[in-house]
């Protein structure tokens, strides 16, 4: 069974819907029309480009191409996580921590899945490796970004409380424990909820794509189950890593709260 190929006309019709939405936004003064059009154009161009890149990559399953591509994706994901934080860590550290957490959440998990579960030969076969990594990066990014952003913001807002606990003789772990746990929960709860809703409320995108592409629903479902588990594990461990690394930076070697390592948000 072959997929019905979409023509440029089909896509233009879909784009017209967004154009209508942009016009509506303009009429009712939402002020979102410019961003909507820019984002829409970005999405189209980026996806077309990645389509070309993937086409080339699949035709030449070169180990170094795959690794290079993966690292490009990782550095962009790390930047996205860093850029989404309201109060960023000063200097290179913040970016390195975000990228490091994404490495844990996606790279390690994707590698394990390719070797142990999918068992494709060679393990870096781009048809499997790149989409798997992309799904993991995209889906764990939210959790890691959410938790990191919340940690720096909460510690900043509750600095009086944290310092009070230090003054009462708590260690930095005790003084920031509730905040850190709270942030980890914030990062993990969305994926836990979407596991519970999968199949009942939502048909996840990957599975839908596979079914549209002609796979049997049962095969599609099995892959979706695998992906969901990987995303949950990746998000969880990525969040734990990010929170640990960031909170270590917020206290110095004498367990003092050092907030001058945070940049003030741009208003």
């Amino acid at each position: 069974m072959n997929v019905i190929s979409l023509s440029a006309f089909d896509l233009s019709l879909a784009a017209l819907l967004v154009l209508m939405l942009a016009f509506t936004s303009f009429r009712i003064g939402l002020g979102l029309e410019k961003r909507m059009l820019i984002s829409g154009s970005r999405m189209t161009i980026q996806l077309l480009l990645i389509g070309i890149v993937l086409k080339y990559l699949f035709a030449n399953a070169n180990f170094f191409f795959v690794v290079f591509m993966s690292f490009c994706m990782l550095t962009i994901a790390g930047y996205e996580v860093w850029a989404r934080q309201k109060r960023k860590l000063r200097g290179r550290t913040g970016y390195l921590i975000s990228t490091g957490s994404m490495l844990v959440s996606s790279f390690v998990v994707a590698f394990l899945a390719l070797i142990l579960m999918v068992g494709v030969d060679p393990w870096y076969t781009p048809q499997y490796a790149i989409p798997l990594l992309g799904m993991l990066l995209g889906n764990t990014m939210n959790g890691v970004a959410l938790a990191s952003d919340r940690l720096t913001t909460e510690i900043y807002n509750q600095r009086g409380m944290v310092e009070q606990r230090l003054l009462l003789g708590d260690t930095w772990q005790e003084a920031s424990g509730e905040i850190r746990r709270d942030c980890m929960r914030t990062g993990m709860i969305p994926i836990i909820n979407s596991m519970a809703a999968a199949g009942v409320v939502s048909l996840p995108g990957m599975m839908t794509g596979q079914i549209l592409g002609g796979s049997s629903p049962l095969d599609a479902v099995k892959y979706q189950i695998l992906i969901m588990f990987l995303i949950a594990a990746g998000t969880g461990f990525g969040v734990v890593t990010a929170i640990w690394l960031i909170s270590r930076r917020l206290f110095d070697e004498r367990q003092r709260l050092v907030l001058d390592c945070l940049l003030s948000p741009k208003s």
């Binding site: 009086g160 409380m161 009070q164 606990r165 230090l166 003054l167 003789g169």
Partner: peptide, 17 residues
């Protein structure tokens, strides 16, 4: 943390969590 237990500061504004 042990130093702060021995040398305890009571700040002007107290915090409660």
């Amino acid at each position: 943390q042990e130093w702060r237990r021995m040398v305890a500061m009571v700040p002007a504004e107290s915090f409660w969590w």
